[in-house]
Design a binder for these strands. Structure first.
Length: 853
DNA sequence: ATAGGGTTAG
């Protein structure tokens, strides 16, 4: 502008006067020329300044004002060029101002057909519609656009990516390359995002190769996307490799690694990453804290999570819906509901996720009423329940056996069309199965059109849990016919189904089969097998299975150790149990309550009450289960006073005794004949602790009464209880009859028991005992012969027999038997489980066979 | 380029 003659001339008047000539109206004078030039220049200046003004309005996001300015320019008859439309459109893209953009689009069509076919404008329009996620318009523009270029490709790939059409995005990437355009470092992140979402590591690696070839590796966006992609595909080593090789990282890069760790369950690593970030002095963002809180929530790391929350406050981070939800998730998962609700109340914007988190938090802490209360509040806010909330609620109903809540939830799903969601369907099937309504479970299962692997597995597990291997196997074959290949979870259920039904060989066979088709048994497979074998009396095989598991390189966890300890109990393998205890002491920093409880149980049941007490005493923060285990140990060893003392102590420690506490303490009393104490316990249980006695509790009291010889009172109790007397109770009476020499009643009861349990050898033995007591040896022999025919013979030298997954006892062995100690011990142990007393059994250790002539 | 809640097996 500075070089223009008009504005630079210090004295234009002078030069004009010099050149002035007589006026000719028909001739263009110099003045005219000058005037014209002046006018043109005025236009030009106007043009320039308008353009600058408009452009800066665009950059400030005042798009509508910019458009108005262009209208003014039109009035001034200024020419509107492509660059003006381009600038306006760019402003709209920036602001995602779709409707203004559409106005401009309309003007373009109206004012200049030539612009509409201008590559620059066409691309800008396409970008506008793509960025505003107007899929149809963007796509039709893309199809009709005269010339495609890198930018239009980038727009369309990015659009597909944002809309979740990840395959389309990758197709676009390929097509772009095929048509000779090289994706730039703006396109690559989108392609990588699509790979990550699709978990398509092969394609991702291909893109990585392209990145290296093109030299985009130094671009933080590209490299961060690579980290993210590897993380999403679960290849964390490569994510870390890319991360480590990066020269300039930013907070997104760090966040991406953390997110990768959290997604793959490596919460410790994520937390470590977070601390590294702090050391590096990188300012955490909402994303950082949100992932950190997820990791803390997953690990139950209360201190860490609280630090995260503190950082939100200190850093003045805005409490976005996502960040707020992450905080609530953390507090809910660690059970700090007051804090969760405090954050909840302070959040301005809440969405379904936020509500769901607070609801499932209460559901998890068992406060169903509060949860439902919030559910109704949520409805007042006009928010609808979504499938995630329902799945959570159904899962909670399943865990607590709350059929009423479960049905209500199911009805809600039907009314709102949520049952077609497979995840919801699985949770409903599971709920009905766990509430023992297999018929409903099956109906929901059958009516779910789109069955996925988890749904099949849920139904399989339902059958397996009930020990119905036939049904399980049936479904197992059907899923394969319907084209769903079973995974390790499915195989595990089949194995469990057999084990629960006592079919050990079939279970082992299934293990071999699954291996032969290439499905590798995992920790749960082995643990199920170990505990199933132990429960079926194959403790030695359970221990061998454990060794197989270790050979397969699978590290035992607490659950597998617990089932291994149960194998030790089965075998009375004190030495092996001690070895496990030693292993735990060496390899586990703090022995958790479940492990300590199992150890107490193992030591007690393997005969070493002192060690049991030692483990109990050295366990800090004793919870109810370990008290229960210790009481049970005392009961087993006939130390009722100690058991009672513990029962009182746990209450002093602020714990509330549960049904198991009463079972064990009652056992202790009935074992030692502490009738008054036992009756008082029973009374406390009902009136003070408001627990409903089960058959087992009645059994103990019946046993106590019978032992005192108070058969009448025992009968009265049986008549008054809300159950049909089971074999254990009748067995208690039977034992009393034995002691009281009530031979007729003894015969009657044993016959009735045989009717109830025709495969339980103990009942036949009891009957033959009764005959033996009456000196009717022929009948004794008949019973024994019948047992042999039925295959119910006991193992020679041993005093127990096993049928259908349960151990059944009765007759003892020879007192001179070399293993008599062990036999006697096993008997005592089983006596406890069968409601017989230890003294009773040991006094009957004299074998029937010996006294039989 | 990065972030929050859901279902199955011991």
């Amino acid at each position: 502008m500075a070089s223009l003659p008009l504005s630079t001339s210090p004295n234009p008047q002078l030069s004009l006067s010099k050149l002035s000539k007589p006026t000719d109206p028909h001739k263009l004078t110099q003045t005219h020329v000058a005037k014209f030039q002046q006018n043109a220049k005025k236009h030009q200046i106007l043009d320039q300044s308008y353009f600058h003004h408009m452009s800066s309005l665009c950059k400030q996001g005042q798009i509508q004002e910019a458009v108005d300015l262009v209208t003014e320019m039109e009035f001034e008859n200024l020419e509107i060029g492509a660059e003006i439309y381009g600038e306006l459109l760019q402003g709209c893209v920036y602001e995602r101002a779709l409707s203004t953009g559409q106005q401009i689009h309309a003007r373009i069509i109206k004012n200049g057909e030539c612009f509409a076919r201008n590559e620059y404008i066409e691309t800008k329009l396409l970008i506008l519609y793509a960025k505003c996620n107007v899929y149809d318009v963007a796509y039709s523009l893309f199809r009709t656009v005269g010339i495609k270029n890198v930018f239009s490709w980038a727009a369309i790939i990015g659009l597909n990516c944002r809309m979740g059409f990840h395959e389309e995005a990758l197709f676009g990437f390929c097509e772009m390359l095929e048509s000779g355009f090289l994706p730039d470092n703006f396109v690559v992140p989108n392609a990588l995002k699509a790979c990550g979402s699709l978990q398509c590591i092969k394609f991702g690696k291909g893109v990585h190769g392209y990145v290296v070839k093109m030299g985009f590796g130094g671009c933080v966006f590209v490299a961060s996307s690579l980290v993210d992609m590897y993380g999403k595909c679960g290849v964390l080593e490569d994510a870390k490799k890319v991360f480590d090789s990066m020269l300039d990282k930013n907070v997104v890069t760090w966040n991406s690694v953390m997110v990768g760790y959290v997604r793959n369950g490596l919460n410790e690593e994520a937390i470590k990453m977070f601390y590294d970030m702090r050391i590096e002095g990188i300012e955490p963002t909402q994303v950082t804290i949100s992932s950190f809180l997820s990791a803390s929530a997953n690990m139950g790391a209360i201190e860490e999570g609280k630090q995260g929350h503190a950082l939100v406050i200190v850093g003045g981070l805005e409490l976005s819906t996502i960040l707020g939800s992450s905080i609530i998730n953390f507090y809910s998962k660690v059970g700090l509901m007051e804090e969760a609700e405090l954050v909840f109340s302070r959040m301005i914007e809440k969405d379904a996720v936020t509500w769901n988190l607070i609801i499932s938090g209460y559901v998890q802490t068992g406060d169903i009423d509060r949860a439902l209360d919030i559910c109704s509040q949520m409805r007042l806010e006009n928010l609808r329940f979504d499938s995630v909330i329902l799945a959570t609620l159904m899962s909670a109903s399943a865990d607590t056996g709350n059929l009423k809540l479960g049905r209500e939830g199911h009805c809600y799903c039907i009314r709102n069309g949520l049952e077609s969601d497979v995840v919801v369907a699985s949770s409903i099937v599971d709920m009905y199965a766990k509430c023992e309504r297999l018929d409903f479970a099956r109906r929901v299962f059958d009516s779910t059109a789109k069955k996925d692997l988890v749904l099949w597995n849920t139904m399989l597990a339902a059958y397996a849990e009930l020990g119905l291997p036939g049904e399980t196997l049936n479904l197992f074959y059907r899923m394969q016919l319907e084209g769903v290949p079973p995974n390790v979870v499915a195989w595990n259920s089949v194995i469990v189904g057999f084990l629960k039904n006592g079919q050990v060989n079939e279970a082992k066979d299934m293990l071999l089969q699954m291996q032969s088709v290439g499905v590798q048994p995992n920790l749960i497979t082995w643990t199920s097998l170990i505990s199933g074998l132990a429960k079926n009396g194959f403790g030695n095989e359970a221990i061998i299975a454990f060794q197989h598991m270790q050979k397969a390189g699978i590290k035992p966890n607490a659950v597998s150790i617990v089932s291994l300890l149960s194998a030790c109990i089965d075998m009375a393998l004190l030495q092996y149990g001690k070895a496990i205890h030693g292993y735990l002491t060496r390899n586990v920093h703090v022995i958790s309550t479940p492990l300590a409880t199992s150890l107490v149980d193992m030591y007690a049941k393997c005969g070493n009450i002192d060690q049991a007490k030692n483990v109990f005493d050295t366990t800090i923060n004793k919870e109810l289960p370990i008290y229960n285990a210790m009481i049970s140990s005392y009961a087993l060893h006939g130390q009722a006073m100690e058991a009672l003392a513990l029962y009182r102590r746990l209450q002093k420690e602020g714990l509330e005794p549960d049904a198991i506490t009463f079972t064990n303490t009652l056992y202790a009393c009935s074992n030692t004949g502490l009738a008054n104490e036992g009756l008082e316990l029973f009374f406390d249980m009902v009136s003070k602790h408001h627990l409903r006695p089960t058959m087992v509790h009645y059994g103990c009291v019946v046993n106590l009464l019978s032992r005192c010889g108070n058969l009448d009172e025992a009968f009265r109790l049986i008549m008054g209880m809300p159950y049909e007397p089971d074999a254990h109770i009748l067995g208690s009476l039977l034992a009393a009859c034995r002691e009281q020499n009530e031979i007729e009643l003894e015969k009657y009861l044993s016959k009735r028991l045989i009717k109830m349990e025709p495969n339980n050898s103990g009942n036949y033995v009891a009957l033959s005992n009764a005959y033996a007591a009456a000196g009717r040896w022929n009948e004794v022999k008949t019973v024994r012969r019948f047992m042999k025919e039925k295959g119910l013979m006991k193992i020679p030298g041993c005093s127990w027999i096993q049928i259908g997954g349960e151990l059944h006892v009765f007759v003892a062995g020879d007192k001179s038997h070399p293993k008599i100690e062990e036999i006697s011990y096993t008997l005592a142990l089983l006596a406890l489980e069968m409601c017989f007393t230890r003294n009773f059994l040991t006094s009957h250790l004299i074998s029937l066979e010996n006294s039989c002539p």
